[in-house]
Design a binder for these strands. Sequence first.
DNA 1: CCGGACTGAGTGATGGTTCATTCATTTCTC
DNA 2: GAGAAATGAATGAACCATCACTCAGTCCGG
Lengths: 204, 204
Amino acid sequence: MRSARSLTTIRPPVADKRGAILRAAIRVFANNGYFNSKVADIASEAGVADGTVYLYFKSKEEILHSIFDRSMEEAINEGRKQLAPITDPREKLRRIALLHLERLGSDRDLAVVFQVELRGSTKFMEEFSAAGFAEYLGVIRSTIEEGQQAGVFRKELNAKVAAKILFGALDEMATNWILSKRRYKLTPMVDTVLDIFFNGVSVK
Amino acid sequence: MRSARSLTTIRPPVADKRGAILRAAIRVFANNGYFNSKVADIASEAGVADGTVYLYFKSKEEILHSIFDRSMEEAINEGRKQLAPITDPREKLRRIALLHLERLGSDRDLAVVFQVELRGSTKFMEEFSAAGFAEYLGVIRSTIEEGQQAGVFRKELNAKVAAKILFGALDEMATNWILSKRRYKLTPMVDTVLDIFFNGVSVK
DNA sequence: CCGGACTGAGTGATGGTTCATTCATTTCTC
DNA sequence: GAGAAATGAATGAACCATCACTCAGTCCGG
């Protein structure tokens, strides 16, 4: 009988197939687009058979959903943690913006899926919009409202619209970064965005 | 002999089939998404047979391209015309923003195709980005640079980034408007966007 | 050897594209 | 000016390549 120890060390007893498939899917979707990606491509990229994919996901669509859900959950948790100790509204917004661009900037394939593939159908947009994006916009919005209460941001501004403007600016930074042939750092863009935004919304 | 006049008046000698197909495609793509739309759907929406579509377009993909090319050309022409007589950089930017939101706000289906469907693949994004969007961003950017020369906008700002911010903000207004269940006017958003943006980029 | 993880060839549906055929209109012919 | 012939726009049934998904079988750890 082989030693019990080797069993758990030589081979990961449960290789994280699910995770491997998800990571493979991100790569494949990023390169070919969701609709042009074959499940077979994902399987071979993950090093498993076609059928195995269906042991972990009920459909191709569910894979895309899972990518979104998983990433969003991670981002939200990380966000909550980092925002909790901050009280200054400006500081909060800066942290949000940083987290936003850091996350996308550190995984180009995931960024492509988020910026491009997840937008490619009103169906997804509506579903996801309802769930994740709306909540995200809400966080920005209420932070801006805190700033208005605190007297640092102009009270006459519509906080919801201001939130969309900030989000839109960050979003465009990310999209442009993905499409650009040139390779530059995404995170530093936060400075210019917030420079303009804060100047735009602050009381004089 | 039938009167020569009646020949040209009784029946439109050449009904604009091509245009009809394009308009139908915009409607169908907006409702189902590009990849979920069947050529047969477009044909029946346009009131022609499946095969007729292929007398005017070489493929389904070419239809999407044509929608983009045609709308972009229209927008650019209209834009040039309206911008020509304006010299004040702020006024120029206001006109650009207005045209942007007016055009999308006046045709929801076209807006969906532009905001959602055209983004749904890196392939399209890269092609189109190279052609249309880049040029558009360039116009905004050089207007901002004019403002910097004229001393109304802060010189230390990176004009390219500022241009992306303005574009991103407008783009987000449009996308949000499409996804929103509530029906509101898109054009007035220009005011808040420019209020914040001008305050953000102007010299104090 | 059992049970469950895994495989990958096969299947059925889908939908983009083609093309033989139709027929309204125009052009000839007498 | 009437009929015949030619034209080509339009049709839509059929074709067939493509995949998402299934399942009968294999593999392997214990």
